[in-house]
Design a binder for these strands. Structure first.
Lengths: 141, 141
DNA sequence: TTAAGGTAGATGCAAACGCATTAATCTCAC
DNA sequence: GTGAGATTAATGCGTTTGCATCTACCTTAA
């Protein structure tokens, strides 16, 4: 068992533990965490996002994402626009209600995250960010 | 946006990127990654594991885990034993075929993990392990 | 211009999931 | 002991997921 494998296992474990903890908190309203994640990703980009772009940020298959966007659109949280430059494509953005919902959930959730990380020192938090950024390969666009 | 929130976001991103990358690799045979994870968790403990114990290590609801164990049992990879000390409980262990399957998948996958972590220095790998262990709260038992 | 190949996103369908609930067993105060 | 409440794992059921495939559109080169 290499160090790398131990680190990966430890990372997965931290992810699972924290995900369960966050999921158990009563801040999600009538959204699932996955749905919230989509709203959050959209909230980060002011310009409408391509489906494929969004897909890169979300741990879901492309069809599952497509249908999730269906549902969020149905619920008036997300809007689909045709992409002027590419008629196959779609541009996604939050509706005002979607932005509102994202914020309402995001605020208490962000506090939970801060609380969960309070066992770490400030240096450790920064190191973690640096290391995981490197790990993700800095796939900028 | 606090440092903690940035670190969490970065961790989630690393998790998603690596999960997708690993999932795309052709090492899983006819198992899903989630199924492999169950086999792996069982392979780590020589003594049969309680369902509830296993559940703590896996990112699945309790019913979903119960049914996944059904399927793995059906496929002769996992065995359910009654727990002598608690007649509600179940003790789970790998069958020889399950252990074999876990190893056959685990070997190439471990190499992938090592490769994915090769962008990090040895110090960073160790720091990551330490920090994520702290984060998970060291919920030993 | 047009045919060949690639990419974006949607859809059919079976399998798997989560929530709510249940059955069975354990625990412990009385 | 016994009954109230907690805990373990399984089941009913509607929803969501992934795989395979499909349609529509873009791109390139001849």
């Amino acid at each position: 068992m290499t160090r790398a494998n131990e680190a990966w296992e430890s990372l997965m474990r931290a992810y699972a533990v924290l995900m369960k903890r966050f999921n158990a908190e009563d801040v999600w309203g009538d959204l699932t965490m996955r749905e919230y994640d989509v709203l959050y990703q959209l909230s980060k980009c002011d310009s409408p996002l391509r489906m494929s772009e969004l897909h890169r940020h979300v741990l879901l298959s492309q069809p599952a994402l497509s249908r999730m966007v269906d549902r969020l659109t149905e619920r008036n949280l997300v809007e689909r626009h045709p992409d002027p430059g590419d008629r196959r494509g779609v541009r996604l953005s939050l509706t005002p209600a979607g932005r509102e919902t994202q914020r309402a959930i995001g605020r208490p959730h962000a506090r939970s995250v801060t609380r969960a990380f309070s066992t770490l020192t400030a240096e450790e938090i920064d190191q973690l960010a640096v290391i995981t950024r490197k790990l993700a390969g800095n796939e900028e666009k």
